Computed example of a mutant assay.
Amino acid sequence: MPVWILITVTAAFLQNIRSVLQKHLKSVMGTTGATFVRFGFGLPFAALFVVLLHFGVGDPLPPLQASFFGWVAIAAVAQIIAQALLIQLFSHRNFAVGTAYSRTEPAQAAIFGLLFLSDAVSGATVLAIAISLIGVMLISVARTAVSPASLVTSVFTRSAGIGLASGTFFGIAAVGYRAASLSLGAPNFVMQAAFTLLVGIGLQTGLMLAWMLWRDPGELARIRAAWKISLAVGLVGASASFGWFMAMTLQTAAVVKALAQVEMIFTFASTVLIFREHINKLEILGCLLIVAGIVVLLLV
């Protein structure tokens, strides 16, 4: 079994744990704070990964390219926006459905891969995008009277808009981080991923800290009060991102994110067992269609 598959499944499991913890944080702090803890509390762990690889394993630091910083900046900002949108979405719908909206990310990553990295888009990729879009529409109307008209107009609802936008920015971030890691070229995929993570998460921490100091300094007090859970979010978040970056250095972003839909299994388990939330049949069908669309993308 290719190593990128094992890394991706592990990262998906860790990401679900991070999302569960962030949903709890949303009840004690704002969207900005719940988004920040993923980066600010993950930074020490990202630095630790690089230190262990450099001084423990003996991997040299990668040679830097100008393009590396450009791609990291684009990816870092896109990921901040995507994460904030996803956390905001949790306030509109239940945990599993909120997560499912962003699952159009791999299909969108395929489009951005074509635009920015010249990755080919096949007919099967187009089919995958269509299947996922139908899934999003079903979720949007799952708690309303379903009709052909409502299926068409569902993608223009507030929840659908936030979810699709989250998927768009996640797709941009995935392609950007892959491009950044590949631009390093050496010494190996593990150090390339770790170094990309450190620079990216460092930039994100600085940007979000400056934003909170300017717009909402009171959020810092709420973050300090929830430091224990925030630290856990930082650990699993940084570890999951490390996994994504390693996998995307070895494989295209769209394919990695397609396999990552295994997270939906973990998400449904969290929804039922932890949050005790109800999911109706149309919501389940919509989620399954999104996953099916991504599976088609994986088989391309």
Score class of each variant (00 low, 15 high):
241 S>A: 15
68 F>M: 12
48 L>K: 11
122 S>R: 10
41 F>A: 12
76 A>G: 11
112 F>R: 00
12 A>R: 01
249 T>Q: 06
57 V>N: 03
86 L>G: 04
172 I>W: 00
36 F>P: 08
111 I>N: 02
299 L>Q: 06
103 R>D: 00
101 Y>K: 08
286 G>C: 05
19 S>A: 14
183 S>E: 02
266 F>M: 12
218 G>D: 09
205 T>P: 13
113 G>S: 03
246 M>I: 10
38 R>F: 13
280 N>I: 03
176 G>A: 05
143 R>L: 12
270 S>C: 07
230 S>L: 09
263 E>S: 03
109 A>S: 06
100 A>H: 05
119 D>V: 07
70 G>A: 08
207 L>E: 09
94 N>S: 09
107 A>L: 13
76 A>F: 09
272 V>G: 03
37 V>W: 12
180 A>G: 05
59 D>W: 07
190 V>G: 07
84 A>M: 15
56 G>C: 13
94 N>C: 06
222 R>S: 15
15 Q>A: 09
257 K>N: 07
233 V>E: 08
276 R>E: 08
284 I>M: 15
13 F>R: 01
48 L>D: 12
131 I>K: 02
212 M>Y: 08
47 A>D: 10
125 T>W: 07
191 M>E: 14
17 I>T: 13
35 T>S: 15
40 G>Q: 10
119 D>R: 08
151 L>Y: 08
236 V>T: 15
280 N>R: 11
145 A>M: 14
68 F>S: 12
239 S>F: 11
257 K>W: 10
242 F>I: 03
212 M>H: 10
91 S>M: 03
206 G>T: 11
119 D>T: 04
214 W>E: 11
273 L>N: 04
108 Q>H: 01
273 L>H: 10
165 A>H: 02
183 S>Y: 02
126 V>G: 05
84 A>L: 03
84 A>R: 14
298 L>T: 04
160 A>C: 13
123 G>M: 12
39 F>H: 06
219 E>N: 10
277 E>M: 05
209 L>W: 14
279 I>M: 13
75 A>R: 05
171 G>V: 00
165 A>R: 03
211 W>K: 10
264 M>D: 00
192 Q>S: 11
246 M>R: 06
139 I>D: 06
16 N>C: 13
66 A>G: 12
261 Q>A: 01
57 V>Q: 12
128 A>L: 06
39 F>M: 13
143 R>N: 15
11 A>Q: 05
165 A>W: 05
235 L>A: 13
36 F>E: 15
272 V>H: 11
97 V>Y: 04
280 N>Q: 07
244 W>T: 00
299 L>E: 02
276 R>V: 02
258 A>G: 13
148 P>Q: 10
148 P>S: 12
68 F>R: 06
52 L>E: 07
5 I>W: 01
58 G>E: 08
90 F>Y: 14
60 P>L: 07
201 I>N: 07
37 V>G: 12
109 A>T: 00
269 A>Y: 07
140 S>P: 13
209 L>V: 14
170 F>Q: 04
66 A>K: 13
261 Q>M: 02
230 S>N: 11
13 F>W: 04
189 F>P: 05
55 F>P: 09
138 L>Q: 10
112 F>T: 00
